[in-house]
Design a protein around this nucleic acid. Structure first.
Lengths: 268, 268
DNA sequence: TTGCATAGTCTTATATTTTGGACTATGTTC
DNA sequence: GAACATAGTCCAAAATATAAGACTATGCAA
């Protein structure tokens, strides 16, 4: 009506005067996850930059459904029992994830090193299970923490089957800078991803910080796609021999987890 | 405007011409949970009695957010990785639930009997973790299955702190009939609930069917409220001595799980 | 008690989501 | 290849959810 781009504007640009309930809900979940613990209901509208009436309405609906819980006289909000139940259902339907979690526990116990199980969500890797090693050094690997894919070995594995265009479309603006702020060269990064295709193990040394290195191995589904990675996070100065042993152990773990059904090898 | 009950009608009666996105999402989750596994996307509008366009739209949004996953060329829909992550966050914030799950595993291993961990959701109990016993008999205790509260010992415990009015408001129409179809006497049921208050153990024999009995013990939070129950599901003919031993074990487990902080005894 | 701050409820209008249904795409059968 | 079945996309209109903000409730301080 008013110009050339009226349709385009309509899609998703600029924060519109009103936002969809579902979108608000997704942001709410994401926010709670980021916080890592209960948040006061009265604080949520501010945190989400959303109207009070909307948030009170939605939270009540979600709490009624058991996806959220409201606790105490100051109405602390956090995930609810149904969220847990649905999450459990996911695990039951995805054998690979359930076994990955267990494997992390086994590896950490066996080796004493910090072990993680990671998946991809959009342009980031998400740690869905982790077990700290017995070393004093505490490496920041909280469950749920998100790291841009270009920062990690895991990230390269999880993108290894994708084209440059796909990779480019997946990375958000905030995923295109390295920890030191320097921009990611997408072409080079995509090449690294593709180079890691079918590799049993990828290592990055000092990429996130100067004190740690990471060993990552792919966990593939029945179609041969990398669904997750299993990793060790190690201090930079691990003795060479120990490192070699850890690498071998990780590759073995990866192989045990991966579902490489020969029959479905050419199904995808 | 048009009569006495216009406000009341506006609230939730009759399926309105349109339904809210959030409500559709909740029904979708519930439906997937009930199915217990992936459902074809094209089938969902029919299953949910919802318009195609709406479901396709919502599913895409939820899949993009990682709460659902779309798999294969026939677009199988099921819960996604983020659902699992959020569910895990719930567990981390609710120590009691995490320990309850572990305890079920311990009890089942130790005794060889079917053990369950249950919570309440509206007028039903929901099994959030279960471990089948070593007996041949398979009792229907799938994780996620829902049973009306009046059918179980657990149900009585979980309502034990409530008044008749509260109990009445919680039970939906479908929760007011026993397995044999006979209606529940709410007054009598509420009395039974209140009688189970502070009981370390409640038993029901042959209530759901004639072949099983159930032992249930309360798991209370820091405020002394019953947040969950831990149970044994046994065949009707367990030797008396064995039964006594199981009862004792369950009470012990219940005590270990329950958080009865003396300091917060009068906080609620 | 008054005044102030924080929390939560309720109402009404408008901006937008939901919806029906037409349309396209894909695959299967004859 | 035509006819059909199934799956998925797109559009414009109507119905209603979101949002703004007034309002009430609660708690605390002076």
């Amino acid at each position: 009506m008013d110009g050339t781009a009226s349709r385009a504007l309509k899609t998703r640009i600029a924060r519109r005067p009103r936002e969809r309930g579902v979108d608000r809900v997704l942001k709410l979940f994401s926010c709670l996850q980021a916080k890592g613990g209960p948040v006061r209901l009265a604080e949520l509208p501010h945190m989400l930059d959303a109207p009070k009436s909307t948030i009170y309405d939605l939270v009540n609906i979600l709490a009624e459904a058991g996806l959220l819980e409201i606790r105490g006289k100051d109405s602390q909000i956090y995930f609810g029992k149904m969220m847990h139940l649905y999450g459990t259902s996911y695990l039951q339907a995805n054998e690979i994830m359930a076994r990955g979690r267990e494997m992390v526990d086994v590896l950490a116990r066996e080796t004493g090193e910090t072990s993680e199980f990671c998946i991809r969500h959009r342009g980031k890797q998400v740690i869905i299970h982790a077990r700290p090693g017995s070393r004093p050094l505490r490496i920041s690997s909280e469950i749920g923490s998100r790291i841009p894919l270009p920062w990690t070995a895991s990230g390269r594995l999880m993108l290894s089957h994708m084209s440059l265009a796909e990779i480019d479309s997946i990375l958000g603006p905030e995923d295109r800078a390295m920890p030191d702020g320097s921009p990611v060269d997408i072409g080079k990064f995509a090449a690294e991803c593709q180079a890691s295709r079918n590799m049993p193990l990828v290592k990055t040394v000092g990429m996130i910080n100067n004190f740690t290195q990471c060993l990552a191995a792919p966990v593939t589904n029945a179609y041969g796609l990398v669904e997750a990675t299993i990793c060790f996070v190690l201090p930079i100065d691990v003795p060479a021999e120990k490192k070699r042993a850890l690498e071998a152990r990780l590759v073995k773990a990866s192989g045990e987890l991966s579902l490489m059904n020969t029959e479905s090898g050419q199904a995808g």
